[in-house]
Amino acid sequence: MHVPDGFLDAPTSIATGAVAVVAVGVALRGARRELDDKTAPLAGLVAAFVFATQMLNFPVGAGTSGHLMGGALAAVLVGPWTGVLCVSVVLIVQSLLFADGGITALGTNILLMAVTTVVVGWVVSRVLLKVLPKRVGLVAPAAAIGAFVSVPAAALVFTALYAVGGTADISLTTLATAMLGWHTLIGLGEGVITFLAVGAILSVRPDLVYAARGVITERDLVIKPKESVA
């Protein structure tokens, strides 16, 4: 979903740029609470993994493809604030080094792929984990659903931005329908990849998964002599 230069007009791009700067600034403060000597290197690895996986466009039919955005994945693995930072670094490197995503659209892309997908992915998976029974096995499915929802959500935010500052005169209903439709399909891929990646780390080191911490701790506190920690 990398927006190139020229899709949105200058005022909108400046506005999204300002929002992105504020969001990254707030994330820098918030990430301090999530990062320690162990999770800091993990954040670098998660960002590298997101970059690598973003190169893997998967076909979604009719000559279209999609790739992971990774906001939900990063948020679940290393925490939402750090997740915003991880995906932002990916987007900055992609734009400056790989000419992927416009430079004037960097704020837009951070808003769409680093902020929207992290917020939606995190909130959805968080709510699910609050409602569902406290089981480590449910963390990966919750993350996958959050990831799935985050992609059409980002598509809707793009449509809203286009309604405000799109440079071409097109039907917004057509745009919204097409964006939502395709990105719901792409979201399925996002969900599957997130499920596999979160599940893989959970199976070896559940303590490294940020979203699983609450689940593990609460289980540790339950006094049930017969049942050992999963």
Binding site: L28, T39, P41, A43, G44, L45, V93, L97
Partner: peptide, 21 residues
């Protein structure tokens, strides 16, 4: 190259931001 650059930048940023034990 991209993977290594992202690893170093994001990892480095996280190391600077982290609270130190």
């Amino acid at each position: 190259i991209g993977t290594v650059v992202v690893l170093l930048l994001a990892g480095g940023l996280a190391m600077v931001v982290r609270r130190r034990s």
